[in-house]
């Protein structure tokens, strides 16, 4: 890890060594590449448990991790006072365990409570069963549109009354709780975007990537030509059983008889 340089946009990936289980570091690759194609120079900083974090990065990206890794990640974030860095950042994307860690408390299956960073008014506790499968959700910000992603978590997250959800899930579980009478997915709070969606979420949803880049740079984000993007989006939106009016059945229930 090195300090941020004179690049237009410094993007820090926090703790991919423990919050990298679900390949969310790809979100930083997507942000950097989309910025680069629009002429904005970027620097990617990878910050592991063994490093001290940079406090001046423009964008921070956190991902999902194994349940067992959460306390170590929380200790690191608190020890390095990352609350201030994240509160001052131009844009933050936090996925799954990363989302939970930005909240106030995370309760595990045994009832132990891990303190989060309290950047978001949100509390997480275990749901009855693990939510595993495809999610489709309508963003609460019209320009972001429909989101798709893959969720894989046990935690259910309750947002404080003033926190806006990122989206309303029409398929899948999302936060597993209701906000103002509707199911909720993720959270939006100033520069912070939090979600349960993997994929990585920014690869699947370029509008969300550009929402973050607009926050980070203050610039309009003209469309980019990535030939695989549209067929991919169409596939995930069209194969949604919800779109065909069928009830979604979580994938994790079955066991295939033969594994590779």
């Amino acid at each position: 890890m090195s300090a941020p340089t004179a690049a237009d946009l410094a993007i820090a990936v926090l703790l991919p060594d423990v919050l990298g289980t679900y390949s969310d570091a790809g979100n930083a690759v997507v942000l950097a590449e989309r910025a680069r194609r629009r002429g904005v120079s970027t620097q990617l900083l990878t910050v592991t448990l063994a490093d001290a974090p940079p406090h001046g990065a423009d964008v921070y990206v956190l991902g999902g991790g194994e349940d067992a890794a959460l306390p170590a990640a929380a200790r690191w974030l608190l020890r390095h006072r990352m609350r201030d860095a994240l509160a001052e950042a131009r844009a933050v994307l936090a996925v799954c365990a990363g989302f939970q860690l930005l909240g106030s408390t995370i309760t595990d299956l045994a009832g132990r409570v891990v303190q989060g960073l309290e950047v978001l008014d949100a509390d997480t506790a275990p749901g009855r069963e693990r939510a595993v499968g495809e999610v489709v959700a309508s963003a609460t910000v019209a320009t972001i549109g429909e989101l798709t992603g893959f969720e894989n978590h046990r935690g259910h997250t309750t947002l404080g009354p003033a926190v806006q959800p990122l989206a309303v899930p029409t398929r899948g579980t999302g936060n597993g709780t209701q906000q103002h009478g509707r199911p909720s997915e993720g959270a939006l709070s100033g520069a912070i975007v939090a979600t349960y969606l993997h994929g990585p979420v920014l690869a699947r949803n370029p509008s969300l990537a550009d929402h973050l880049l607009a926050l980070a740079t203050g610039l309009d984000q003209p469309p980019l030509d990535l030939p695989d993007q549209e067929p991919l989006r169409r596939a995930y939106l069209e194969t949604s059983p919800h779109a065909r009016g069928r009830r979604w059945r979580p994938i994790g229930r079955n066991r295939s008889r033969r594994r590779g």
Partner: peptide, 13 residues
Amino acid sequence: READGRDTSWLWD
């Protein structure tokens, strides 16, 4: 498919 894992996120690693 099911025997592959339904989530393709791992391609990014």
